[in-house]
């Protein structure tokens, strides 16, 4: 395991889609290599931060009313 291979496997590691052997190799490399350890932690954190860039927003009640009115009209004209 070298650093380049290690970093190319971060995604597979997080999604748990690599074999146990490879997983073990990756873990021991990350344990020994500080740079890869930092890369992995910041890679994982980047994903988490992307998921939190905005408060979950939702359709406003007014927009929902407009949508429903429009769909109702269209629904009955097509059925």
């Amino acid at each position: 395991m070298n650093c380049r291979i290690c970093s190319s496997l971060f995604q597979e590691y997080l999604e748990n889609t690599i074999s146990q052997d490879l997983m073990d190799e990756l873990r021991s490399h990350i344990e020994l290599c500080e740079r890869c350890r930092v890369c992995f932690k910041t890679y994982s954190l980047t994903i988490q931060l992307s998921g939190r860039i905005e408060q979950p927003c939702c359709v406003s009640p007014e927009a929902m009313d407009r949508l429903k009115a429009m769909l109702l009209q269209r629904f009955f004209s097509s059925h």
Binding site: C3, R4, S7, R35, V38, C39, K41, T42, S44, L45, L49, S50, R52, I53, E54
Partner: peptide, 29 residues
Amino acid sequence: SIEFEHDWSNLPDDILLSEESRNILKDSI
């Protein structure tokens, strides 16, 4: 780049999730 890596993963949430950092991430996306 795979240059020198500094570890920012232990920074507190108020820095990680500050408006400025979220805007930087949004703009980069």
